[in-house]
Design a binder for these strands. Structure first.
Lengths: 348, 348
DNA sequence: TTGTACGCGTTATCAA
DNA sequence: TTGATAACGCGTACAA
């Protein structure tokens, strides 16, 4: 009962201090026992563990994080949640994180650059050990990324990546992916191939457009600018873009369409249906990403399967490796895609 | 340069202390200015804010949380992430949380009770201000919930709820929901109606089964135990369950099936297809939850629309209200469902 | 093996 | 309006 500088502990929760007092040992001994350090008398350890269990002790990760300057948490920023792709990615991230003992703080930019900046700052404030991000569509200013990276926050981009800021990027090879599916169409005799493109400000949009051009080029097909229509990444945009294509004189219309992703393809298919055009007879169409709905679509959609789970897992593993100093930043990781042929391309 | 007990601050990051030193004021003043407290000289405030911006100061939420014993974070536990329902719920949660200034730590039980217990303990360790959970299928022991609730952790169940432990539950009225869709079939002349049930250990499974029974009962239809087959919540189980029904002698087969949810219905539809049976002519089928794929299924699926986004939003708002003391725990919140008639029931 | 002293970065409290 | 002090709960470093 000496006049020690002992913590009052107003909150009702059990702490190492309390356990220590009850057992007549120091807090450090309790801490060591709880963390399985070797230098603790087995008997003492047992007493501590028993007391901890009995009192329903839950270690305070916040205090631990503050002391260790490490939260064992990674922040995730996704531009949308509903689309089937991101949930799968998140599952992959969760999987890798869980095995490595990390937790996930999930934030959502809703495709808005302000919200994205908010999210990043929030995550920095929460002192996450690293950030995993797929950029919002509206982002033009990459200084937020630059700042974070310069401040030493491990940063890994996935899917929608930003190269040249020194962060590791995990994605499919958009160019190759789009080129391959375009060549699939060319190989089956299509000649007037249109492209519903994403915004070219986003790496995906640009990369895929390039792949499309590349494929035409390789096979000596002329690039017809009127056959490239920006649709964005969503169903609605795909619908409008197809409407635009259908306004072309009948003989100038494409015989096949490469959509930047599956949702855009769905929108386009809807427009075709409304115009009583048959898929693939009147117009073939292919997508990209293998949305869960692709198989079930009115006309099952030919698409490039994008291993979402694996992207998430790869990205999280890469980030964690960098956090733990086992790998260097600035790598470029490519995840393989696979052509999934269904009916919409008319090749089966 | 007096021999003060000043923090060395080995890490390179800016802190309130550092700003305070640079400006020759106390840390408290900086803190107050940064948090917009009223009792700060406007001039001082401006100097502080300027210095903060210039030095790229990011508040340390960890330290703040430790001091305030409040993390402004809510923990979320979902049993799966891929299924389209949960991503939508999460979006709803995120929406409500974001507006209220809370963040989300996402965990995933993978339908496993051990992982779920882990997740809850993790969240308690991280001192989240409250927990939002949809229980895993394999859970039989509810003491983990009990303990957490008794320890004063605000707890709200959504979708797969546990009543009687004093926590608020947010869900649809499973009984009513299933009864209504069953009655829809009865009203259109079906008489031998089967039910692919979920595990009855889960509230949803039990509630829906009861609703099904109730509907038959209300209309004087005899309950035929052989027409109730447990399918679980997934496609695979739905497939097997339908296989089982199809082993019944032809004249004892059901003319319609109420599946516990859409994925189970998809599995059942696949089995019907493989047996060359037509939907709905040979057998009608309805689901529940309005999976994104329902509309696109080979035979568009009649189902009860479950407002996933709203469930998430309602649950998060309820939890936050309880965290902030604006509402009491133990409430029961029902979110309305809506019958969505498509082709699979043969009623259009 | 165990204990002491102190820092992690912030805020509440009370005094000036 | 401002500042000094202590506390939030835990871990590192060093001493015993």
């Amino acid at each position: 009962m000496a006049g020690k500088k002992n913590t009052p502990n107003t909150s009702g929760r059990t702490t190492v201090q309390l356990i220590a007092q009850k057992l007549g040992v120091s807090a450090m001994t309790v801490s060591r026992a709880l963390n399985g350090k070797p230098n603790v008398d087995p008997k003492t350890r047992d007493r501590v563990l028993a007391a901890a269990r009995k009192s329903g002790y839950t270690p305070n990760h916040i205090a631990r994080s503050l002391a260790l300057r490490r939260t064992e948490t990674i922040g995730v920023v996704v531009p949308e949640i509903s689309h089937s792709f991101f949930p799968e990615v998140i599952r992959g991230i969760e999987d890798a994180a869980y095995s490595a003992g990390y937790h996930i703080v999930l934030t959502h930019s809703a495709e808005d650059d302000c919200r994205e900046r908010d999210a990043i700052n929030t995550l920095k404030s929460k002192r996450v050990d690293g950030i995993l991000i797929s950029t919002a569509q509206s982002v033009t200013d990459i200084s937020t990324y630059r700042d974070a990276i310069r401040q030493g926050v491990p940063f890994v981009f996935f899917d929608r990546v930003v190269q040249g800021v020194g962060a590791t990027c995990v994605s499919i090879d958009d160019g190759d992916c789009c080129a391959r599916i375009t060549e699939h169409l060319i190989g089956h005799g299509y000649r007037a191939i249109a492209h519903l493109s994403g915004p070219t400000t986003v790496s995906i949009g640009k990369g895929r457009l390039n792949g499309y051009k590349e494929a035409l080029n390789r096979h000596g097909l002329k690039l017809r600018p009127e056959l490239i229509v920006e649709s964005g990444f969503h169903e609605k945009g795909g619908y409008s873009a197809m409407e635009e294509l259908l306004r072309l004189p009948a003989r100038e219309r494409p015989d096949a369409v490469v959509a930047v992703n599956d949702p855009a393809a769905f929108g386009a298919m809807k427009a075709l249906q409304e115009h009583k055009l048959r898929i693939p007879q009147d117009m073939a169409i292919v997508g990209m990403s293998d949305d869960v709905r692709a198989e079930l679509a009115i006309c099952p959609l030919t698409t490039m399967r994008q291993p979402a789970f694996e992207i998430g897992k790869t990205a999280a593993s890469a980030l964690i490796a960098e956090i733990e100093g086992r790998d260097k930043p600035g790598r470029k990781l490519i995840v393989e895609t696979e052509l999934t042929v269904r009916k919409s391309c008319g090749c089966v």
